[in-house]
Computed example of a mutant assay.
Amino acid sequence: MIDLATVRRAADAALSRAAELGLSVSVIVCDDRGHEVFGCRGDGASWQTVEIARAKAQTAASFGRDSAALGTMREKWPDVFAIANDALPFRATSLAGGLVVIRDGRTLAAIGVSGALPDQDVEIAEAARVLL
């Protein structure tokens, strides 16, 4: 389990990295079950980035892998995503920027970032993941 102070430091690290890159993003941190622990919309980030970041984090937590890694699965087995989107309380996504945190072989948390280009979202999320 991760504590709120750690989650906030991680989210701050992501927002700091985004600011260094001159970007405005939203950051969501979820627990191992995809339940939001902390979320924020950075200054200047558009409103929809919050929901996209949330979907990225929830997907990474629920599937136990980074959201972008699900692209191949989505192409090969589209029914998995169709079923997941019917069964899960959120829409699964293969957009880059959802990173899973695994410790001792178990999912601990996930972070989602949205508001920049896919590679930038990943870079920003990585700045947080190293602190979780």
Rank of each mutant, 00 (worst) to 15 (best):
A125V: 09
R41P: 02
P89M: 09
F38S: 02
I2A: 13
I28S: 05
G39T: 04
G105M: 07
A13T: 06
C30N: 10
L117I: 02
H35N: 15
L99G: 02
S94V: 01
T6C: 10
R103E: 15
V100H: 05
D3L: 08
L4Q: 11
A128D: 11
E75N: 12
A45P: 03
A69E: 15
I2F: 08
C40D: 12
A45C: 11
G71Q: 13
A127Q: 04
G42E: 05
R103Y: 03
C40R: 10
S24A: 15
E75W: 06
T49G: 01
G34P: 04
L99Q: 06
S26C: 12
G64A: 15
L21G: 02
D66P: 06
L70R: 07
P78K: 04
D12G: 04
A19R: 15
R41C: 06
V27S: 11
I83D: 14
N85A: 09
L132I: 09
A19D: 14
M1Q: 13
L131K: 06
V25N: 00
V100N: 05
A127S: 14
E36P: 10
D12M: 03
D31L: 08
C40Y: 06
F38R: 00
V50L: 12
L108W: 10
T59Q: 02
P89G: 08
I28K: 02
W77P: 00
N85I: 11
L21T: 00
V100D: 05
A68Y: 11
V80H: 10
T72W: 09
D121M: 01
E123W: 00
T59V: 07
G34A: 09
F90H: 05
W77R: 13
L15M: 14
S26K: 01
A116E: 03
S16V: 05
V130A: 14
R103S: 08
I2G: 07
A14F: 07
I111S: 05
G71Y: 05
D31M: 08
F90P: 06
W77V: 13
A53S: 11
T93H: 03
G39S: 15
G71E: 15
L21I: 02
Q48Y: 12
T6S: 13
I102S: 01
A96Y: 00
W47F: 14
